[in-house]
Write a protein that binds this DNA or RNA. Structure first.
Lengths: 217, 217
DNA sequence: TATTTATGTTACCAGTTGGTTACATAATTT
DNA sequence: AAATTATGTAACCAACTGGTAACATAAATA
C-alpha cells in the first residue's frame, strides 16, 4: 500500500509565502550559514523541489526575499517622529535620533542583521544584488540625517557619517553574536548609552568648530 | 605492485610548519569559509590524518595558527616610528598615524582580515579563542594611542576611539571584498584620503572643544 | 643488520550539500 | 463522472564534509 497522506492541501501562493517565511526564520535562527535549499525546505516543512519550481533555485528565492517589504526598516521608522518635527532638530540631534532608532530597528530584525553580516563576508551574486538594492535607501537615510537643504559643517560630512554608520553596523553585528569589542560588553544597555554620549560629544565638537570657523570669517 | 613513492621525506616539525602555512594560504585565497581539514590538507599537499595527529583536529590547528607570531601586527609596526618620537605627537596625530598604519598592516595580511571577518559572523569555540587572545593586544593599542599618562579630553575617549576603530575595521573588511559602502568606492586611495581628512576634522574639533572647556574653567 | 618506532598515505565511513527525475494526489476543466 | 492540469512528495545522484582505520615506508634503535 503506497503512502496515503491525510488531507494534503494545495495552494501555490500560500506555499510560496511559507517558503519566504522560512527564509526569515532560518536567518534568525542560524544566520546566513543556514541559507541552503535543504535547510529552508525543512524549515518550511515542504519539499525542496518547490524552491526550484517557484523561485528557480536558491538565488531567485533570496532575491525574492530581499524584495519583500517590511524587511528593511522604512525611513519613517528610522526617523521615529513626524518629518516636520524632525527637520527642525539640530544636526547633532538628528544624527543621534537616527542612530538610536536604527539600532532599535535592527534589534527587532535579527534576520536583517544576519543579512548585513553576510554582506560582510561574502561577495557573490546574491549579496551583490542585496547591497545594490539597498544602496539608494541608505543614501536617502544620509540625506534625511543631513536635512534637505543641508549646509555643510565640514568638508567631510559624508565621510564622518559614513564612518559612524559603519561603526554602528559593526557593533550591532557583534552585539547580535554576543561577542565583545575592544573590551566593551555590547550586551549592556549602559555601554550603548555611552556610545550615545560619545556621538553627542563628537557632533557637539564639530558644531562648535563650525561656529568658530563661521565667526572668524 | 603497490605504490612506490619516490623519496618520501619524513620530518615532523617541517610537516607541522607546512600545515600551519597552508592555513594562512587558504585564508588568503578563500577566506575563513575554506577552513576545513580537507581543503587545508589539499593545500599543504599532505594527508588530513596529520592534522588530527599533530593538532588534535581542526580546532587545535586554528588555535595553534592564531598563536603564531608575525600574524597579528606588532605595536611597533602600528606605531611606525620610535616610541620617543611618537609620544610627543598631539592626540590627533597619534590617532591618525595608528589608523593609517593599521590599515596598511591589514592590507599586507589578507589572512588576518579574513579572520576578522570570520569573527564578525561566527561565535564558536574557535573564534572565541581568537578574540580572547587578541583583546589584550587591542587594549594595548588604545593605550598606545592615548599615551601613557593620558589626560582625558572628553568623558568618552574610549568609546570614541572604539567606534572609530570599529569603523576602520568594517571598512577594511568591505574593501577586501571589493564591495562598496554608502556609495563610496573603497578601492580608491582618494576615498581613504578623505577618511583620513574626516578623522583629522573630528579630532581637531574635539581638541578645540577640550581647549574651550579648559579655558572656561 | 634486524627490529622497532615514527611518520605519511590510501581507502573507507556516515552525513550533508545542491540539484534532478519519477511519481502521487489534489484541484480544475471537459 | 472522466480526463487533464497543477501542486506536492519521495527517491536518487554526484560531490562534498569531518573523521577513522589499515597500511606503507622512512628513520631511529637495538
Amino acid at each position: 500500500m503506497p503512502q496515503t497522506k491525510t488531507s494534503q492541501v494545495k495552494n501555490k501562493e500560500q506555499t510560496k509565502a511559507k517558503i519566504l517565511a522560512a527564509v526569515g526564520e532560518v536567518l534568525a535562527e542560524d544566520g546566513y550559514q543556514g541559507l541552503g535549499v535543504n535547510r529552508i525546505a525543512k524549515q518550511a516543512g515542504l519539499a525542496k523541489t518547490l524552491i526550484y519550481r517557484y523561485f528557480g533555485g536558491l538565488e531567485g528565492l533570496i532575491q525574492a526575499y530581499g524584495e519583500t517589504d517590511s524587511f528593511w526598516p522604512s525611513v519613517d521608522e528610522i526617523r521615529g517622529m513626524p518629518e516636520a518635527e524632525f527637520k527642525h532638530l539640530p544636526l547633532r540631534e538628528r544624527c543621534r535620533t537616527i542612530f538610536r532608532n536604527f539600532r532599535i530597528a535592527l534589534k527587532k530584525r535579527p534576520h536583517t542583521v544576519a543579512i548585513y553580516a553576510w554582506e560582510m563576508v561574502e561577495n557573490n551574486e546574491l549579496t551583490k544584488g542585496l547591497i545594490a538594492s539597498r544602496t539608494q535607501s541608505s543614501l536617502n537615510l544620509v540625506k534625511e540625517m543631513m536635512g534637505q537643504n543641508h549646509v555643510e559643517m565640514t568638508d567631510y560630512d559624508h565621510e564622518i557619517t559614513a564612518m559612524l554608520g559603519a561603526a554602528l553596523l559593526h557593533l550591532t553585528i557583534r552585539e547580535s553574536l554576543k561577542s565583545p569589542f575592544a573590551g566593551l560588553d555590547l550586551d549592556q544597555q549602559a555601554t550603548w548609552d555611552r556610545f550615545d554620549g560619545a556621538l553627542e560629544t563628537v557632533f557637539t565638537a564639530i558644531e562648535t568648530l563650525y561656529k568658530t570657523k563661521q565667526g572668524s570669517q
